Simulated assay, not measured.
Amino acid sequence: MRFQETLLEGRLIERYKRFLADVALDSGEVVTAHCANPGAMMGLKEPGSRVYLSRATNPNRKLKYNWEFIEIAAGGGPRQLIGINTSRPNLLVAEALAEGRLAPFARYERVRPEVKYGRNSRVDFLLEKDGEPPCYLEVKNCHLMREAGFAEFPDCVAARSAKHLHELADMVAEGARAALVYVIQMDAERFDVARDIDPAYDKAFRHALAAGVESYAYVCRITPEEVTIDRPVEIVTPR
């Protein structure tokens, strides 16, 4: 996914009220950007960090900028760009599915986003092919790294995400295929559930795996011009 315009660079002043971030642009202007991330953003909101903003495409929107990346030495490793915009992963997965770059799902002929299922929920993608069971595909954004090279999810209690895991397990019980894709918006070598942050999510994740829900984790290649799903990495959660 290429950005339509060059991203603006600046320094983070403060992230506050969950969805707002004040940034001092390199031009000297101070702006308030939309922070599309409801999580704790552990390690990703240090004042003075270099950040990158995109311009909002809707000219009528109150906040004219979106916070896209922060540059930090995550987990004590080398400095890198980390994507904090949680609205990006679904777009990245849709792009990768359309281009046939996600091997476990390459055989499906139709991709439908935001399909109602379960207990008053919507699955991110429903994949279909004539003569085969449908595949319910849920996408999660990952940007937590407390140890170099080791990505984790979630970064706060994620009750809604745990609910989705139980609903995916229910779909498997009904004869469908179900899968979870973690989009890691940074470079990493391994992935695991942050069970110390949310034990309930870890329990739901293990239940889903035991029920037959598949899980995959992909790191992204990130530059100021483009972000794209790059390669799969190992999920180390013991079954």
Rank of each mutant, 00 (worst) to 15 (best):
R50D: 11
V51W: 08
S54G: 11
S54I: 13
T57P: 06
T57I: 12
L63R: 11
E68W: 10
F69W: 14
I70C: 07
I72S: 03
I72Y: 04
P78A: 10
P78R: 02
R79C: 09
R79I: 09
Q80L: 08
G83Y: 06
G83L: 13
G83M: 08
I84V: 15
N85G: 04
S87P: 07
S87I: 13
R88P: 03
R88H: 15
P89W: 09
P89Y: 09
P89C: 09
L91Y: 09
L91K: 05
A94Q: 11
A94H: 11
A94R: 14
A94I: 06
E95L: 12
A96Y: 05
L97G: 01
A98D: 15
A98L: 15
G100M: 08
R101P: 10
L102P: 12
P104A: 01
F105P: 00
F105Y: 10
A106K: 15
A106S: 14
R107Y: 11
Y108I: 01
E109R: 14
E109V: 13
E109Y: 11
R112K: 15
R112A: 14
E114D: 10
K116Y: 14
R119Q: 15
S121A: 15
S121P: 05
S121H: 12
S121I: 11
V123G: 04
F125G: 04
L126H: 01
L126V: 10
L127F: 11
L127D: 08
D130T: 12
D130I: 13
G131T: 09
E132V: 07
P133G: 04
P133M: 08
P134D: 15
P134H: 14
C135D: 11
L137N: 06
K140Y: 09
K140D: 02
K140Q: 08
K140R: 12
H143I: 09
L144S: 05
R146F: 04
R146G: 07
A148G: 00
G149L: 08
F150M: 07
P154F: 10
V157Y: 12
A158H: 14
A158S: 12
A162G: 11
K163V: 13
H164C: 06
L165F: 02
L165N: 01
L165H: 03
L168F: 04
A169I: 03
A169N: 06
A169Y: 03
A169M: 02
V172H: 07
A173S: 06
E174G: 06
G175C: 03
R177D: 09
A178E: 00
A178N: 00
A178L: 00
A179N: 04
L180I: 06
L180M: 07
L180C: 07
I184G: 00
